[in-house]
């Protein structure tokens, strides 16, 4: 112990060792874990997440407060004001929560459905597999956005129908990936032995196969979130979004339809667009990072235990 202290006093600049010794927290371990992800994506994502969780800390005004409309950017309103006099910067910050919520909620729904269908068809095989995968292929050929447009037009636009519709229509690729992984896993030793010991199929699926699916599911989940966010902005652009919940897509749509574009107010429509792009990109980059790690693992044969 004494030696250690002396060593640390000599090398006080190595704060990582210091923390590791005194706080029982190995920073390097976390750093190694962090390196496996795409760090740029992670930081951007953290930034947007904080914006979404605590918008009131960053926004200078409430998004519903009204000032003089159509104002150019100034020190009072950093990004100017829109047609009804809301501060655009505040609107932008409050919009993060709504856009991200739509993305994550609908990705949750689609991942759940894809997981169930893929797991069942991969585990039971046979006729059920043929039927479920046939159904998946059939759904895959139906163009999503036009169908969502029709549904959105018939149902009255609200954020919940949007989430539900987006979630219910984008599970096919997840189902396929889960199925192929399940087909591979069900031949492995531990699943076979579990079956010999007489566990029910349900139990095997939950406790033996599912934990091994998580690392395929996570990247797919992230990518589903990204595409759901893009779909949401597209639908909002058509006026099928929820006007009472101002997401970035609705801001863009309003800027286009309520004179922001004609009046050359770039500060109105460029920031939400850039926010969407960056946020989607950060999520997609994290997803790609997961996928890359997955491939490396396969190469090294980690899965083949």
């Amino acid at each position: 112990m004494m030696q250690r202290e002396v060593y640390l006093q000599k090398n006080t600049r190595q704060w990582k060792d210091f923390i590791a010794n005194y706080l029982d927290l190995d920073v390097r371990k976390y750093k190694r874990a962090l390196k496996k992800f795409n760090r740029g994506g992670l930081f951007l994502f953290a930034f947007f997440l904080i914006l979404a969780l605590f918008p009131s800390l960053f926004a200078p005004y409430s998004p519903t407060e009204r000032f003089i409309s159509y104002e150019a950017p100034s020190t009072v309103h950093l990004l100017g004001t829109n047609d009804i006099g809301n501060d655009i910067l505040s609107e932008l910050i409050y919009g993060a929560r709504i856009s991200m919520m739509v993305g994550f909620a609908s990705a949750c729904i689609s991942t759940l459905i894809g997981l169930m269908i893929g797991l069942c068809s991969g585990y039971f095989r046979g006729t059920l597999d043929e039927l479920l995968m046939g159904f998946t292929d059939v759904v895959l050929t139906i163009p999503k956005i036009p169908l969502i447009i029709i549904l959105g037009a018939f149902l009255h636009p609200s954020i919940w129908t949007l989430i539900l519709v987006l979630g219910l229509l984008s599970w096919e690729s997840i189902a396929r990936v889960v199925r192929s992984k399940t087909l591979q896993l069900r031949e492995s030793g531990y699943v076979k032995s579990a079956r010999c010991m007489g566990f029910s199929s349900f139990h095997i699926m939950i406790s033996d196969i599912f934990p091994n699916l998580i690392h395929v599911l996570l990247p797919k989940f992230m990518l589903a979130t990204a595409s759901a966010m893009i779909s949401e902005t597209s639908l909002s652009f058509l006026g099928l979004g929820d006007i009472s919940m101002k997401s970035w897509g609705i801001m863009l749509s309003f800027a286009f339809s309520r004179g922001g574009f004609i009046r050359d107010m770039w500060w109105w429509y460029i920031p939400p667009g850039i926010c969407i792009t960056l946020c989607v990109m950060s999520i997609a980059l994290i997803g790609f990072g997961f996928e890359g790690r997955e491939k490396e693992n396969e190469k090294r044969g980690v899965d083949a235990e």
């Binding site: 597209s234 652009f237 863009l252 989607v280």
Partner: peptide
């Protein structure tokens, strides 16, 4: 990657703004 993460109509808006306006 950036392009694929941009909503297509935003890209269109930007192009219209820069090259046409």
């Amino acid at each position: 990657i950036t392009l694929s993460c941009t909503p297509p109509y935003f890209l269109a808006l930007l192009c219209l703004h820069i090259f046409a306006f």
